[in-house]
Design a binder for these strands. Structure first.
Length: 527
RNA sequence: GGGCCUGUAGCUUAGUCAGGUAGAGCGCCGGGCUUUUAACCCGGUGGCCGGGGGUUCGAAUCCCCUCAGGCCCGCCA
C-alpha cells in the first residue's frame, strides 16, 4: 500500500473529518525541498478523500515569523528589520535592498511558490499566520499559555532538555520599532501583555491582535487546536527526539486540543550533475524544476519514494529514468493476476498508488498525461532536430505517435528544449558534434573504419541529401568496403560525436551542415 | 552525549506496520524487427534481503546485539 493510503487508513480511526496541514516560513526563495513538505501533506489529504473521508488541506504560511538575520541575498539595509514579522516588512528589490513596502516580504517569496503549486495541482486553503493573530483566533490559547506558563516551560525544558531563562514568557510582544527582539515582558492583564523594549520604550500588546506572537513550539501546538489539524507531516528536524513535535503534542493537549500523530518526512538532497555544482550550493526552485519536467513527473519524484527515505533530486540521468519509469507504469499498469503472490500484489498496489497521487488533476485519467515517447529518445530528437515539425514526423515514422502530437507531448518537447539549453542537462545525454576526429576516436575506428569513412564521404558528396539518401549511402559504404554494419555505424559515431553509439546516424548527419560533415570525413586518416 | 532514518541483484529500489516459497525497472547478455546502432518487441543472466544471535512449524519482515552510511538535536522542510 502506498504510504499516503496507509496514513489515511490510520487517520480514519480518528474520525471522518481530516485536516492536513503544511507550514513554511517564507524567509527566502522556496526550493524543491519545500515541495516535499507540501506534497507529503497534500498526498495524504488526497488519499483521505479517496478513502471517502471529509478532508481538507491547508497551507499555513509563517508570515508572523520574524526576520532572523540579514541573509546573503539581502542588503545591510535589512539590519533594521531583524526581529520584525515577515508580513510587516517590505520585499527586497533586485539589488537586495528593502523596497517601498507595496509588496510585503512574505508575499514576495510566497507568490511564485503558489504559482508553482497550482501547476502541480495543489490548491491549498492558504492561511497567513499573521492574519490568524490579527483575527484574534490565537487569543484564547495565548491566555491559556500565559496562565500555564510554568507547566509549558516545564514541558519544554524536560522534553527538549533545553534551559529556558527565568524571564521566559510564552508570548513575544512587538516593541515600538516593530521588532520582537530585545522586548521584555513586564506584566500581563488579559488581554494585554505589557512590555519594555530595547530602547526603553514601554507599551502593551493586545493578544487579540497581531501585536506579537507565541514562540514556535507553542505557536505550532496552538494552531493544531485552532485549525483542528489531524495530520501535519514535519521535516526530520522537527521530528528529532526532543524536537518541536515531541513538545508540541503535550502542549497541544494542555491547550485543550487533540494533537496529530507524529509523521516525519526525510529531506530532499540535491544531487549535482557532476562534481561542479555539489560544492556550489546551487539550489533548484520549484519553478525551475517545472521548466524542465512536467508537473506529474515532479509529483512522482515525491510519490514514488517512501516518506522516510532520502530523495536525491538529480537533474541528470536519474531524472530521465524516473520520468521514463512514470511513462512505463502509466502505459502498462501492473494488473493483479491470480498467480501473484501477496507480496507482488502489495507492490503493484503501491505503484498504482504512486501513479494515482502523481496526477495533477486527481480526477484525470493518468493515461492522458503520458507522451508516449521516452524522455531519452525525445532528448535525442530534440537535439538533432531544430524544428518541432521534424521531431513529430520522426516520431510518426518510428511509430511512436500517429498523426498530430498530443498536447502533453508538445509540452514535453518544449520543456525538454529548456532542459537541454539550461545548466542542468546531464553531460552524458549531450550530443556534441565534433569538427574533427579526435585521437581517442581514431584508435577506435581503425584502418578498416577509416577506409569506410572515406568511402562514405565520397558517397555523401553525391547522394540526395535526405534521410533516406544518407541512409542508402551508409549501407553502400558498408557493402563496398566490406565492413559490418555494426562496425560502420560505430565508426560514424566515433567520428561525429566521439562515442560508440548514438541516435539514428542518417538523421544525425542530415541535421548537420553538409560541408562540415564532408570535411570531417574527408580528413579521416590513420595517424 | 542524546535520538532518528537507511543498508535487499552492477545501479535505483518494492516488499518490513498485519511473518508464509525473494519482486520490479534500469544495465548487461542473446534473439527478433529485412534496419531509428540511445526506437520497438521477445527471452535470459543476476540477490546466503549489512553481519550475528533469538522467538517461531516458518523471519527481509518481530526481539536483542553488532557493523556501515546519512541526518537531526540553533524557531532552517
Amino acid at each position: 500500500m502506498h504510504w499516503a493510503d496507509y496514513t489515511a487508513q490510520r487517520l480514519m480511526q480518528r474520525g471522518d473529518r481530516q485536516v492536513s496541514a503544511s507550514g513554511i516560513t517564507p524567509s527566502g526563495e522556496f526550493h524543491i525541498g519545500h515541495l516535499r513538505e507540501i506534497l507529503s501533506a497534500e498526498m495524504i489529504h488526497r488519499a483521505c478523500m479517496d478513502a471517502g473521508m471529509n478532508s481538507k488541506y491547508i497551507f499555513i504560511v509563517d508570515s508572523m515569523d520574524p526576520l532572523r538575520r540579514v541573509y546573503d541575498f539581502l542588503s545591510p539595509g535589512y539590519e533594521d528589520y531583524i526581529g520584525c514579522p515577515l508580513a510587516f516588512i517590505p520585499a527586497p528589490l533586485e539589488d537586495g535592498s528593502p523596497g517601498d513596502g507595496s509588496v510585503t516580504y512574505a508575499d514576495y517569496f510566497l507568490k511564485p511558490f503558489l504559482d508553482a503549486l497550482e501547476q502541480i495541482g495543489v490548491s491549498p486553503e492558504v492561511v497567513m499566520n499573521h492574519e490568524t493573530y490579527e483575527k484574534g483566533l490565537f487569543a484564547e490559547y495565548i491566555d491559556l499559555a500565559i496562565r500555564n506558563r510554568d507547566e509549558i516551560r516545564g514541558i519544554i525544558q524536560q522534553i527538549s532538555g533545553r534551559d529556558l531563562p527565568s524571564d521566559w514568557f510564552p508570548y513575544n510582544p512587538i516593541g515600538s520599532d516593530g521588532s520582537m527582539d530585545g522586548v521584555s515582558v513586564t506584566g500581563y492583564e488579559k488581554p494585554y501583555v505589557f512590555w519594555r523594549d530595547s530602547s526603553g520604550n514601554e507599551g502593551k500588546s493586545d493578544i487579540r491582535k497581531a501585536h506579537g506572537k507565541m514562540p514556535w513550539r507553542i505557536d505550532w501546538a496552538a494552531r493544531w487546536v485552532i485549525h483542528g489539524i489531524t495530520c501535519e507531516p514535519a521535516g526530520k528536524d522537527h521530528g528529532a527526539a526532543g524536537g518541536s513535535y515531541d513538545t508540541g503534542i503535550p502542549i497541544c493537549k494542555l491547550l485543550g486540543g487533540n494533537p496529530p500523530d507524529k509523521i516525519v518526512y526525510e529531506w530532499i538532497q540535491l544531487k549535482g550533475m557532476g562534481p561542479m555544482s555539489s560544492s556550489s550550493g546551487l539550489t533548484i526552485g520549484p519553478m525551475e524544476a517545472l521548466s524542465l519536467v512536467p508537473p506529474e513527473i515532479l509529483r512522482y519524484v515525491i510519490a514514488r519514494s517512501k516518506i522516510n527515505r532520502h530523495i536525491e533530486f538529480d537533474t541528470g540521468s536519474a531524472l530521465f529514468q524516473t520520468a521514463d519509469e512514470y511513462e512505463r507504469l502509466v502505459a502498462n499498469p501492473v494488473q493483479d493476476v491470480k498467480e501473484m503472490s501477496k507480496r507482488q500484489m502489495v507492490a503493484a498496489e503501491t505503484q498504482r498508488g504512486a501513479i494515482r497521487l502523481s496526477q495533477v488533476n486527481p480526477e484525470s485519467d493518468p493515461i492522458d498525461s503520458v507522451g508516449g515517447v521516452s524522455f531519452r529518445h525525445l532528448s535525442m530528437l530534440a537535439q538533432i532536430k531544430s524544428s518541432d515539425g521534424d521531431v513529430w514526423s520522426s516520431l510518426n515514422r518510428s511509430g511512436h505517435i500517429k498523426g498530430e502530437p498530443s498536447d502533453s507531448l508538445k509540452v514535453r518537447l518544449a520543456r525538454m528544449r529548456n532542459w537541454i539549453d539550461g545548466p542542468h542537462f546531464p553531460e552524458d545525454a549531450k550530443l556534441e558534434i565534433r569538427s574533427e576526429i579526435g585521437d581517442d576516436a581514431r584508435g577506435e575506428i581503425g584502418t578498416t573504419g577509416i577506409n569506410f569513412l572515406r568511402k562514405l564521404e565520397s558517397l555523401l558528396s553525391e547522394c540526395e541529401w535526405t534521410d533516406a539518401g544518407i541512409s542508402e549511402s551508409i549501407s553502400e559504404a558498408c557493402e563496398s568496403t566490406e565492413v559490418t554494419r555494426k562496425q560502420g555505424f560505430a565508426s560514424i559515431y566515433w567520428a561525429i560525436i566521439g562515442r560508440s553509439n548514438g541516435p539514428k546516424a542518417s538523421s544525425l548527419i542530415f541535421e548537420m551542415d553538409r560541408g562540415n560533415i564532408l570535411s570531417l570525413l574527408g580528413n579521416a586518416k590513420l595517424e
